[in-house]
Write a protein that binds this DNA or RNA. Sequence first.
DNA 1: GTTTCTGTTATACTTATTATATAACAGATA
DNA 2: TATCTGTTATATAATAAGTATAACAGAAAC
Lengths: 132, 132
Amino acid sequence: MWMEIDLQSDVPIYTQLVDQLIEGIASAQLKPGDPLPSVRSLAADLGINLHTVNKAYQILKQDGFLQVHRKQGVVVQPGGMPGADAAFRAKLERGIRSLAAEAAVRGMTEAEFAERSAAVYRQLMSKGEDAK
Amino acid sequence: MWMEIDLQSDVPIYTQLVDQLIEGIASAQLKPGDPLPSVRSLAADLGINLHTVNKAYQILKQDGFLQVHRKQGVVVQPGGMPGADAAFRAKLERGIRSLAAEAAVRGMTEAEFAERSAAVYRQLMSKGEDAK
DNA sequence: GTTTCTGTTATACTTATTATATAACAGATA
DNA sequence: TATCTGTTATATAATAAGTATAACAGAAAC
């Protein structure tokens, strides 16, 4: 599996999993309907606990990014991803504001900040250009 | 004082303080040399503990956004803010990537995402247009 | 010089979060 | 029936966050 975990990081393991899975979907490395490893096997692969993986899966299921069947296991949402609703827009604005404020204080202009945002978005999407 | 704290939020109080102070500096509501309330008075104002405020001040001092004198108390860094060094750029990239990935999955285009970033930056800066 | 304010440091304690460890249950498949 | 799946339930340990007191030392004001 292509996932990597940093046990020394200050960001929780389940958050790292959530982030990487969303990035995988965004870049189309994970396509709708694609199967994901079982909570037990992924936990074993990464050398972490079953519940840590399950917590990440639960969050993504709750947000509508994953679907769960009884025996097939976990799959990437086949029937259309959730849109940019009010809750997400609020979360997005908070996140951007925090980053933009420090960037501004450190001398980055609005244009630089916006360009950086576009560049990171672009780079992220280009990871899945080989259609996997 | 213009600070507000949400005790019900999942983001730590000291982080909320750090964010709001950086936003205040970014928007020039707090200008270089401006005095900040003492850890005791601000804690009393917000109904929180002295150490929670002190933790926020320590972080901002460590990053070079604040200066501390013995009796004058805490002031906004008078001698030029730190620049966008490698550490910050890495932190910025991580933060943007996480937000950009979810935005992309939810259907936001690169242009929309970049525009949103610019808009939030702009709105943030406009808060201090009345020169305080 | 004493008082008073400042940041700072040191303990101690409570609470919440994160992560792990086992165990068991129920649906689905071979 | 045996095996794999997600799921749930406990329990425990480690860390982070927040609070509560107390005390120290520098600096300014009386």
